[in-house]
Design a protein around this nucleic acid. Structure first.
Lengths: 369, 369
DNA sequence: GTGAAAGCGCTAACAT
DNA sequence: ATGTTAGCGCTTTCAC
């Protein structure tokens, strides 16, 4: 039964033309068509011409699945992150997607919720679906689990959060230094009692930032540091502020483990009637888009999200395509301090009377009503 | 040559065990293994036991590629959006991903930049990679192009923006009504001169909102409406405000086509020395997470992002799995007005003196310094 | 330069 | 209940 017209699955998908169809119509063999498609040499120019014509006419396109089956790859990588709702990640994802697209790869995006079991499951499922490579932007305690499922370290690069194992490929920014820059800035501005809203212990970017902060504070005996732990969401920023508000000796400046947390902190401060930066200065990390909005004008340390994304993708694809080329690569980018309004009080000698985020000299009395 | 040990490609990938390996070790046929794997009936419980054991032992996992090839599907769908950096989309994506994951599907996320040519290319590439279904959250003028590449309407559902063609499956919210609700709210609050920062004409959600706005304004002769067009980004909000600021008769309330635009508008207002809502009220659409932050407290109309996502996914999977079950489905969700601070001036009779976003009664004089 | 044929790893008739 | 076998659409030796 070489008819080839077996009954198909229930779906009445219009059958796509196959390489065999092209071959038949063009009156050549499938291998010739295959050669043409793959731009292989050894094809008579007139033959090639004709085949190309038929391909066009039938609007044939090679099946990626079949190709993947026989060649062993799928041109798809996955981007793992703890929470896509955290603004940092979409920005990262955007650039990852762009860079991967340039190389003909698609990107699957997955949330891990920082749950090790879930991460493992996700990786399994993705592997099952033929995903070849992974960019993990949120390693936490799931590291070894993921690595074991992957059966190695050659199809994954970590970014944003450095993995524990030094055996892995990763692209991160120098978080410790970022914290040093930021803390120094605050100290220079005269702040002495600084609150630090830390991240979870399993996240190395968080612990490195905390370390940089503490080291810097330790160098200045006349300062005092308050540290509370949170996750990376705005809520934990709000909670931290809530706990500090009850203290007699509140911090005069606050650092959030990232911009989202800082924003959460600011929200809570405003809600409680404090002005930022009039009463309390606030800063974060990452430089998400919102940080530069006049609404907030958040002082922060830029992570160069685009660079992180591009380098991660390139590194991954290199690994994927040229195999395990020797030692793992560790790419560490320089952070940049960006000073904005939330650490720049209008009058640095005394708190403002009415200050609030967005409060600046007025140009007119009012709008018409 | 049934040896099966042909020389593999350059990559020294550790060969994964195949179904044949399992069959050999377990001393059964491949079909039996296949049956076990697929949880098919007609397998002796002891045989099944043994096979399972071998599978475990060899840590065998069926190749998704081969499976996709023979079955014709890949368990992967794509989510198309104009710009993942626009906060609305990550929130949508998150829920889409969650819902799809529940059904064993992965989601590929792609940016179209609202570029018809690019959209078409993307869909082609994805199709080439074996993606089965599409959720298009940003149809614009690319509709017919995409549809033609897809060769039909059965593997795509539109959401967020209604497609032109009524032949398509879509899940959207009632944007016209949303605008009516919002405009009415503003009118009720006493605002008469209202600026509307519209979206591009190719986006139906934008035009529907505009239409609802204008219809409502038309019902009140004592009002005046200003409309400028923008895209969906904060920048266009800022620009619109910029242009209105030069007018003698500025709007006293502003509606952004979405929350991002509204935020951009607020930013510009603050930067120019106006207070929100003291001098100008501002509102948006969508109710992104940030809208509810105390920093902004943005009045908006909720789109119920989660519902949109869930219904879209379910509809798509139903279409994908049960084929073209009759007529296209049009799912329209009810919007909800959410009134917050940006349309609730502290004192409604006259503009406040020092008001600004985040300005509320203070509890203490100041923080210590 | 071109074609025939053997798979890639799996599923689904069709036997038995 | 289990095995045999013919493909899925493509790539890739190996002949001619």
């Amino acid at each position: 039964m070489t008819d080839g017209r077996k009954s198909r699955r229930g779906k009445s998908r219009r059958r796509q033309p196959t390489i065999a169809d092209v071959a038949r119509v063009a009156n050549v063999s499938v291998s010739t068509v295959s050669r043409v498609v793959r731009d292989h040499a050894d094809v008579g120019s007139d033959t090639r011409e004709k085949v190309l014509e038929v391909i066009e006419q039938l609007s044939y396109r090679p099946s990626p699945i079949a190709r993947a089956l026989v060649r062993g790859w799928s041109q798809t990588v996955a981007l793992l992150m703890s929470d896509i709702a955290n603004p940092f990640y979409p920005e990262l994802a955007k650039h990852v997607e762009q860079e991967a697209g340039k190389h003909g790869y698609s990107v699957v995006i997955c949330n891990t919720d920082d749950d090790p079991r879930e991460s493992k499951r996700i990786v399994q499922r993705l592997l099952n679906q033929g995903i070849e490579g992974f960019i993990h932007a949120s390693v936490g305690s799931d590291e070894s689990g993921v690595l074991s499922v992957l059966g190695g370290t050659n199809s994954i690069v970590f970014t944003n959060r450095r993995p524990r194992s030094t055996d892995c490929n990763y692209v991160v920014s120098d978080n410790r230094k970022a914290a040093v820059l930021l803390t120094t800035h605050l100290l220079d501005r005269g702040y002495r009692r600084i609150g630090f809203i830390a991240g979870p212990e399993y996240a190395t970017n968080a612990t490195e930032r905390l370390e940089g902060f503490q080291a810097t504070m330790d160098e200045h005996p006349d300062t005092s540091a308050l540290v509370v732990e949170g996750d990376f969401g705005p809520e934990s920023g709000a909670q931290a502020v809530g706990s500090w508000l009850r203290l007699r000796t509140r911090p005069t400046a606050i650092i959030g483990i990232n911009d989202s947390v800082a924003l959460g902190a600011i929200g809570r401060l405003l809600a409680a009637g404090y002005s930022v930066p009039g009463d309390v200065a606030v800063a974060g990390f990452d430089d998400i888009a919102l940080a530069s909005s006049p609404i907030v004008g958040l002082t922060t340390v830029a992570q160069h999200i685009e660079g992180l994304a591009q380098r991660s993708v390139r590194l991954l694809l290199r690994r994927l395509e040229h195999g395990s080329g020797g030692k793992p690569i560790h790419d560490v980018l320089e952070p940049t301090l960006i000073v904005r309004r939330t650490t720049t009080p209008p009058n640095r000698d005394r708190p403002t009377k009415a200050g609030a985020v967005g409060d600046v000299p007025r140009r007119r009395e009012s709008a018409r009503r």
